[in-house]
Design a protein around this nucleic acid. Structure first.
Lengths: 231, 231
DNA sequence: ATTCATCTTGACGACTTCTTGAACCTTTTC
DNA sequence: GAAAAGGTTCAAGAAGTCGTCAAGATGAAT
């Protein structure tokens, strides 16, 4: 086993801070840098770092949004590093999917200790966030869906449904679970939402399935929900 | 799906703090308390909490030592809650195996957010209850039933019956118990429901058993109920 | 203001599942 | 062996669920 050095992606728009973090961590880790949210998302996909240090105040996409988008396809540990000390910021970031929240200024020792803790937990080897079966390919990291090599254009809602199905491929997801993860936990009233889900699944099938009346991928589990077939 | 409430072990020698944490968290979680390190270690073993909130300043064993001893056998998330704000304490605790370090005083919102984050991370190793015998396989987590490797399609009612039987595999379930857990405790009138149960069991057997007239899996206990054979 | 894509709602037919009654089988009891 | 009790199977209507189409509502972009 080649002990490759672990990689940390540092995301901050201020150059001095990136330099500081780089200097603090480069002894033990390989450092990658990104100055904007877009850069961060791109780097996460192409470089697959082992930990991401993320500033909240980015010029383009807010750090919270970056966290959410990352969490759509990966469990890479995210440690927020921010000047914002208010509790609501911390809560929002942690609930968006961040693993830890560190307020500037902080000690280098604490930072590296928290990075070590995050790495220790994440030791599970992660499988590629890609679903493939027959002529359908879903790449969650790139937000790409290919049918017979052709890109399929999905609406946001359709993609969300497909993403949740892929993230639990093989398992049955109940109507409620799907509705919750797509429209939020508030609106789970009943038949109306179920119907909405059915319409969207129908549209999704029309785009993905060769024969929508006999689905190979998204199968209905009558009275329960839907399942993305793995085999 | 049995939605058991998640359990948090609160370890602190000061009663007021335990009470405060208990009050803050008891809405969402079941709280267990320990006042000493010994108590904490014993409770962790006997009660298997899902998260441990640990104060460093305990009267008998130091919190750091408690963390190390816990880490000898478990990966239960440990969140240190301490008045000690110096960096070296944080580093030592995190390197001892703690997942997070929160300095008193802190907001309840941040605490619960960090608890949620810890739970989310730890939720991965899901133990999947699977029943297998001969050529029948029931995977409750995936809601999958395989007969000779072939997926069997069950109606919601049929699956419910099978699920209850699997959850009590080997034990005899009375008609009443089965009816209660499938149609609710209200309608347990009498012969009508018993008959309904029989019809559904019959349909279930037709799908699962190789020879429905001589059942190998779901056996009838005359005058009592049904039983799922384990061996 | 207009356009466009998307979301949402309603209507309806096709299909699945539930429930019930009747007939048939099996075991126990007298 | 006949009767009774309990259990199983079949079939058919009732009830409910699902998929699809299409029209209206929403909201962002021009």
């Amino acid at each position: 086993m080649a002990e490759t050095q672990l990689r940390i992606l540092v995301v901050d728009d201020e150059r001095p801070i990136r330099r500081f973090l780089n200097a603090s961590l480069s002894g033990q880790f390989t450092i990658l840098e990104a100055a904007t949210g877009e850069e961060a998302l791109a780097a996460a996909i192409s470089a697959r770092p082992d930990v991401i240090l993320l500033d909240l105040g980015l010029p383009d996409i807010d750090g919270l949004e970056v966290t959410r988008r990352l969490r759509e396809w990966t469990q890479i540990p995210i440690i927020i590093v921010s000047v914002r000390d208010q509790e609501e910021h911390k809560i929002a970031a942690l609930d968006a999917g961040a693993d830890d929240y560190l307020t500037k200024p902080f000690g280098v020792g604490e930072l590296t200790a928290r990075v070590r803790a995050a790495l220790r937990r994440a030791a599970h080897p992660e499988s590629e966030p890609i679903f493939q079966k027959d002529d359908l390919l879903v790449d969650l990291a790139r937000r790409n869906v290919l049918k017979q090599g052709q890109a399929v254009s999905l609406t946001p809602t359709e993609y969300d449904i497909l993403r949740v199905l892929v993230q639990h491929a093989g398992k049955v997801l109940t109507h409620e679970q799907l509705i919750r993860s797509i429209w939020g936990s508030e609106n789970v009233s009943g038949e109306e939402d179920s119907h909405l889900l059915r319409v969207n699944v129908s549209n999704l099938r029309r785009k993905l399935e060769t024969d929508p009346s006999r689905p190979r991928y998204i199968v209905t589990e009558p009275g329960v929900g839907y399942r993305l077939k793995t085999a």
